[in-house]
């Protein structure tokens, strides 16, 4: 677990996490299930992330990847996701939980398997955009898959807020925006989400974020999905750990300028 207040290089954390959660083309998952979001979707819950957002809903496998999950080959993961899709009669699938773009070899092979499975029509890749922004060739590879739909989740509208919320050093703030630009340039199917909960994102920062997206593309900015923070158990514990009072937060009001 990274210490409170510690600022880190998220690309380094990505590498260190991959050493734990990836083994050749296998990756650690904790479970496979279907849930109601997106109107019903089969989900593979991955272990490990390169950010340490205090508002994150993911269980503690994010913080202690060495303690959680089992390794699955791309084929096994694909089979388990498709099995969940069939059981719950849904046609959409995703990998979620941790950061799905860690373990690149695993992800690309999983997507290859998924392309051949008629049970799934759309595969949603939920990402924080860091690794896609750091390497354009990764985006190019993803756009080769017909079923892939990317959802990039931004965490902040300024470098200072990015550092405060994710723990990652502010010099990496631009990478998720670079990912958005790259997805656009490569003709990928995607939309952008942002954790713009007014309880911690002031209106001025929210405006900056939307205007920054509008500079990239007006449609992308208009189609921004704004997220709010929910009181999951792990979120409450993290908030306390990182010095945010969850009682005040969830009982509180929006930030004023």
């Amino acid at each position: 677990m990274l210490r409170r207040g510690e600022r880190f290089n998220p690309l380094e954390v990505a590498k260190q996490t991959e050493e734990i959660v990836c083994r050749e083309s296998s990756r650690k998952y904790t479970s496979f299930y279907a849930t109601g979001v997106y109107g019903g979707i089969a989900t593979g819950y991955t272990v490990g992330c390169c950010f340490r957002c205090f508002f994150c809903w993911t269980d503690f496998s994010r913080d202690y990847p060495e303690l959680y999950g089992d390794y699955y080959t791309p084929e096994e993961a694909c089979n388990n996701i498709v099995k969940a899709a069939k059981r719950w009669r849904v046609k959409k699938a995703r990998i979620s939980g941790g950061e799905p773009t860690l373990c690149r070899k695993h992800l690309l092979e999983l997507l290859e398997h998924m392309e051949g499975r008629g049970e799934v029509e759309l595969f949603i890749l939920e990402t924080n955009g860091l690794l896609l922004g750091a390497d354009e060739s990764y985006v190019r590879e993803l756009t080769g898959f017909k079923k892939v739909y990317v959802r990039v989740s931004l965490k902040a509208g300024t470098p200072e807020a990015f550092e405060a919320r994710t723990g990652a050093s502010r010099e990496f703030f631009e990478l998720p925006f670079k990912a958005v630009k790259s997805l656009l340039d490569h003709g990928a199917r995607f939309h952008v989400a942002a954790m713009s909960d007014p309880r911690f994102m002031p209106p001025s920062e929210r405006r900056k974020l939307i205007e920054k997206l509008a500079e990239i593309d007006e449609f992308v900015a208009a189609n921004l999905e704004e997220e709010v923070c929910d009181p999951y158990e792990a979120t409450i514990v993290r908030m306390s750990y990182y010095g945010v009072d969850p009682v005040k937060f969830f009982g509180g009001s929006s930030l004023e300028e």
Binding site: Y38, G39, I124, Y149, F190, A193, F219, N223, E225
Partner: peptide, 14 residues
């Protein structure tokens, strides 16, 4: 109609 709005908007934009 079986997709959430953000996805639907992306697909019609295509």
């Amino acid at each position: 109609e079986d997709l959430p709005p953000r996805l639907a908007l992306t697909l019609i934009h295509e």
